[in-house]
């Protein structure tokens, strides 16, 4: 490492390079949202999970929330099922969530 390299690192990054990097990130993000096949099967997935849960407890459509988030290379499928206040004898779980990667 020479003294010149030291000064080079002090110099701010060229703005065009910053622009390119920012654009690559935002454009890739927006394209994923646009072409995500996940968004297409989501409603059906929600319906089928609802049917399975209904075998055990009585819940309404609005008691199940499916949410997909993207972080880096993988997607997080977040599932929130709100179980109704139960009669005695039943397990009282307010929320259960599971992560699928």
């Amino acid at each position: 490492m020479t003294i010149f390299n030291y000064f080079r690192t002090l110099r701010p990054q060229k703005t065009a390079a910053v622009a390119k990097e920012r654009l690559q990130i935002i454009v890739a993000h927006e394209r994923r949202l646009r072409n995500s096949p996940t968004l297409e099967y989501l409603p059906q997935l929600q319906q089928e999970i609802l049917e399975v849960v209904r075998k055990y407890v009585i819940i309404q459509n609005e008691h199940i929330k499916v949410h997909i988030e993207k972080e880096g290379q993988y997607e997080i499928l977040e599932l929130n099922i709100t179980l109704p206040d139960t009669e005695k004898g039943q397990i009282n779980i307010q929320k259960s969530s599971s992560d699928v990667t």
Binding site: K14, T15, A16, A17, A19, K20, L23, Q24, V27
Partner: peptide
């Protein structure tokens, strides 16, 4: 301005789009 690093180059824009 591309040469001085102030503007996205042809290759940059093409690569992104």
């Amino acid at each position: 301005r591309v040469n001085s690093g102030e503007m996205l180059s042809i290759q940059d824009v093409q690569e992104i789009l």
